[in-house]
Structure formats: C-alpha cells, structure tokens
C-alpha cells in the first residue's frame, strides 16, 4: 500500500486553519478605531469579556452581558470579547486579557466561577465581574453579579398558574446547576401559590457538553409535555430552552390555549420564532447589572463578594391586550411583593 502523506497533511492543515477561525475573537469597535489602545495606560479603560461556551450573540446570557459592556462604550473605553469554544479554554482566554492589562474583565456564566477566581488571585490589580457566579468566599477583586432566579421563576410560575386551564404546566431546563434549580424551584412555588391544584413537569438536560445548546432535545421534551396535557411551558436553558419555546409556538393552539415563557432576557427580541406563544420572559436584568458594576469599577467603588441584580418579568408584547386585566394586576402585585420583600420565595 502506497502512502500519500500530502493527502493527510493538506486536509489536516485546512482543518486546523478553520478550527482557528471557529475560535473567533471579536472587537466591538466596528472599525471606527481599528488600532487597539494601550490598556496599561491610565487614560484608557479596557473592558474584556469572556463568554461561557457559546457565542456572544447566543440570544441569552452572553449576549446580555455583552450588551451591558457595550453600554459603557465612549471616549477612552475599549471593549473586546473572546468566545469560549471549550470549557478547557477558560483560563487561556482569561489570560489573553490579563496579559494585555485590561482594567475590568467580565466572565459570563456559573461554570466559569473557579477559573475567574484563579485568574483574579493571580492578577490582584484587575477587577473581575463574574456574571451569574455566586461567590462562596470573597476574593477582593471579584464581584459576583448574582440574580435571585427563584424570584424571577416565582413570578413566571405565578402567571402560569393563573393562565393554565389544564392545571398542568412544564419547565424544560438546561444542565442541573444552581441557577436552573432556582428557576425551577421558584416556578413551582409561584404556580402553586396561584393555583394549588397545579402539577409541574420538570426536566433537566442530561448533563453534558451540550446541555445549553441542544434545541432538538428541548423541542422533544416540550412536545411530550404538551401531549401529556401541559398548556404552559417555561423554557429555561439557553438554546435548549429556546427549542422548547419554538415547539410550543408551532403547535396548534399556540397563543390561544398554549403559552410559553422565556428566560433570562426578554426573549421576544431574541427568539422571534416563539412569538406565537411567548407571553413573557422571566428576566434577569443582566445588562443593567453588568453596566452598573462596570461603572463601579470605573469610579473605584466596587467591592468584592456578591452583588444582587434585579429580576422581574419582561413585557407582554402582543399578549398585553390578550391577557385578562385581572391576571395582569395580580402578577404585577406579586412582582412588586417580591421586590419589596413582602413575598419571600423559598
């Protein structure tokens, strides 16, 4: 058998080149100021963002945090993101920013908690903001932007409890980690508070690399729940949850007898295919929280530990006129009650 080494080498080289493209980095300056500024200078405020596995336009966490960073843009501010393709690369991606002496580094997602703390200890002068990262022990230069997901889930569940006709609702979640667990817990408690007869079907994605990007799985789970009589589905888990929303949207009865509820962001803007059923979204005000903390970094008032961001329900959009006024009032009362602390979740 004759060997033809060039045939091995050529595709392999091509593969490497293209894989390099896949791990793309992006610059938010959009060509207006192409030359990277010197981040070690005191005049320049450099903000770097490292995404969790997923893209900066994932219609979820990464995107919302990146929008919070972009809100800081202006004179003397440089912003840049790095998309993580593999959880093994967290540290390497963080190092790209710390090597260039960025002033503030935003890391997105619970799974990056440890990598962020490690990088922070090695770079004590850089401020780190860990979006969705609960800090068990305080590291002086790390601030965890955390959201009481249970509160957002509670409001969503309360609305679902008022809307359901079948007394069966469902929730399709990503990997089982504290944020998704809290959403599920709040959702269950809220729905039971509105409607004690309700039963909640709850599924987590079998933990793995794709727990937040497996939209066909989410769609299948939603399909099964609907077939078993659920009439409201809460999709909480990135692309996986979005798959569930899309499935409800294309089932007959969407928007009249079947509804879906999005998560994390106002998914009306981010998942257009869910419009037929999307009543609202259980929202973490991630963008505002990121911007608030970055402002604190800039004026030097930031403290290590945890910072509680706001949660709530997104706008009803097309369903604003379709929902009974009584339902809207009750839900608004609950959201207010959670905010001022008269309703305690969990």
């Amino acid at each position: 058998m004759k060997a033809k080494p060039f045939l091995i080498a050529a595709p392999a080289a091509l593969a490497l080149a293209l894989a390099g493209c896949g791990g793309s980095t992006g610059n938010s300056t959009d060509g207006s100021s192409t030359a990277p500024k010197d981040c070690s200078s005191a005049d320049v405020f450099c903000i770097g963002l490292v995404t969790d596995t997923g893209s900066v336009d994932d219609k979820s966490f990464n995107q919302a945090a990146w929008e919070g960073v972009k809100a800081m843009e202006g004179d003397g501010v440089q912003t840049k993101y790095i998309e993580t393709k593999d959880a093994k690369d967290y540290a390497a991606n963080l190092k790209q920013f710390t090597d260039q002496k960025y002033d503030a580094i935003v890391t997105v997602g619970f799974l990056m908690t440890e990598a962020t703390q490690t990088a922070a200890k090695a770079n004590p002068t850089t401020k780190f903001i860990g979006v969705d990262q609960f800090q068990e022990a305080t590291v002086e230069n790390v601030t965890g932007l955390v959201f009481p997901e249970a509160n957002a889930g509670y409001a969503a569940g309360y609305l679902a409890g008022l809307l359901t006709k079948t007394n069966k609702i469902g929730v399709v979640l990503g990997q089982e980690i504290p944020p998704t667990q809290n959403y599920a817990k709040g959702y269950e408690l809220g729905s039971k508070a509105a409607n004690p007869k309700i039963s909640v079907a709850k599924v987590y994605h079998p933990a793995g690399d794709n727990a937040f990007s497996d939209s066909p799985w989410g769609a299948g789970e939603a399909k099964k729940m609907l077939a078993q009589g659920a009439d409201i589905i809460f999709g909480a888990g990135g692309g996986t949850g979005n798959g569930a929303l899309g499935e409800v949207a294309k089932t007959s009865g969407a928007g009249t007898s079947l509804y879906c509820i999005g998560v994390d962001l106002d998914q009306w803007d981010t998942v257009p295919e869910a419009h037929p059923c999307l009543v609202t979204s259980a929202e973490k005000k991630l963008t505002d929280g990121t911007t608030d903390l970055l402002k604190q970094v800039k004026d030097g008032s930031i403290k290590g530990g945890n910072f509680n961001g706001k949660t709530g329900l997104a706008a009803f959009h097309d369903f604003d006129s379709k929902l009974p006024a009584e339902v809207k009032t009750k839900v608004a009362d609950v959201v207010k009650g959670i905010e001022d602390g008269t309703i305690k979740v969990g």
Partner: peptide
Amino acid sequence: VGQLDQIIAGVVINIVATGITSFYFESGKT
C-alpha cells in the same frame, strides 16, 4: 482515491464542520 486513513478523514470532517458552522453562523435569522 487518495487512500487517506479513513479515521483521519472523518476527524477532519468533524473539525471542519464545527469550524465553518461556528464561523459563518449569524444570529437572528429565521
């Protein structure tokens, strides 16, 4: 035709596929 190792060719396909579908991905399309 080229007698490239079949496993390597398959791995190449998988890597190229991940690369190009991530690189040329555009969000917000419906």
